[in-house]
Computed example of a mutant assay.
Amino acid sequence: MTTTLVFSIITSGLLFVVLDAIRDREDYTQPIRKWGTIFSNGSYFIGAIVILILQTIWTVLWTVLLIVPGIVKSLAYSQAILIYRDAVDSGESIGYIEAISRSRELMDGHKWQYFKLLISFIGWWILVVLTAGLLVIWVGPYYQMAKVNFYNSLVNNN
């Protein structure tokens, strides 16, 4: 569980970097150090931890009922960290549960699109495994960029 949480925080930090890159918020003279954006603001870090824990608990509870509702809910909750980040950046006071609720609302009618996006990476992840993880250097950023572009297009279209 601890390893999963640490990995999820690092992944969230990468999502923040990609979001900044897409929106031209930062100059990237030191791109390797920018993944630590999540640690630059206490709200980002604490928010990411709490949201990740809540998402995990709720997804597990839905999965206990049946696997399919668990998958559907995980897709519905998938944008919560980015929503929280945008709210904090705009100075809006937002609760962790509210970020998850907004994610559910944002993903209404878009879960199938997001599922197809995630499934489209299966071949890439198989190649990562076949190369003993070496290919993750390229696939990881590509995957994060695809997820953030999906979020950005949802936000811009709503």
Rank of each mutant, 00 (worst) to 15 (best):
Thr2Asn: 09
Thr3Tyr: 15
Leu5Gln: 09
Leu5Asp: 06
Thr11Gly: 12
Ser12Thr: 15
Phe16Cys: 05
Val18Thr: 14
Ala21Ser: 13
Glu26Val: 08
Glu26Thr: 10
Asp27Val: 09
Asp27Ser: 11
Pro31Met: 03
Trp35Tyr: 13
Thr37Phe: 04
Phe39Ile: 12
Tyr44Arg: 07
Phe45Ala: 06
Ile46Glu: 06
Ala48Tyr: 10
Ile49Ser: 04
Ile51Trp: 06
Ile51His: 06
Leu54Ile: 15
Gln55Ala: 10
Gln55Tyr: 04
Ile57Trp: 06
Trp58Gln: 10
Thr59Val: 12
Val64Asn: 07
Val68Asn: 01
Pro69Asn: 09
Ile71Pro: 04
Val72Tyr: 07
Lys73Asn: 08
Ser74Val: 04
Leu75Lys: 02
Ala76Phe: 05
Tyr77Lys: 00
Ala80Asp: 08
Ala80Cys: 10
Tyr84Trp: 09
Ala87Leu: 01
Val88Arg: 07
Asp89Gly: 05
Ile94Lys: 05
Tyr96Arg: 03
Ser101Ile: 04
Arg102Asn: 10
Arg104Met: 12
Leu106Tyr: 03
Met107Asn: 07
His110Asn: 15
Trp112Phe: 15
Gln113Trp: 04
Tyr114Lys: 14
Lys116His: 06
Lys116Ile: 07
Leu117Val: 02
Ile119Tyr: 09
Ile119Asp: 01
Ile119Trp: 12
Ser120Lys: 01
Phe121Met: 05
Gly123Thr: 11
Gly123Phe: 07
Trp124Arg: 00
Ile126Gln: 03
Leu127Tyr: 07
Val128Leu: 03
Val129Phe: 11
Thr131Phe: 01
Gly133Arg: 06
Leu134Val: 05
Leu134Lys: 00
Leu134Ile: 02
Leu135Thr: 01
Leu135Val: 03
Val136Tyr: 14
Ile137Cys: 00
Ile137Val: 15
Trp138Phe: 14
Trp138Met: 06
Tyr142Asp: 11
Tyr143Pro: 00
Gln144Trp: 08
Lys147Val: 10
Asn149Arg: 15
Tyr151Cys: 05
Asn152Leu: 08
Ser153Glu: 15
Leu154His: 06
Val155Thr: 01
Asn157His: 07
Asn157Asp: 13
Asn157Phe: 01
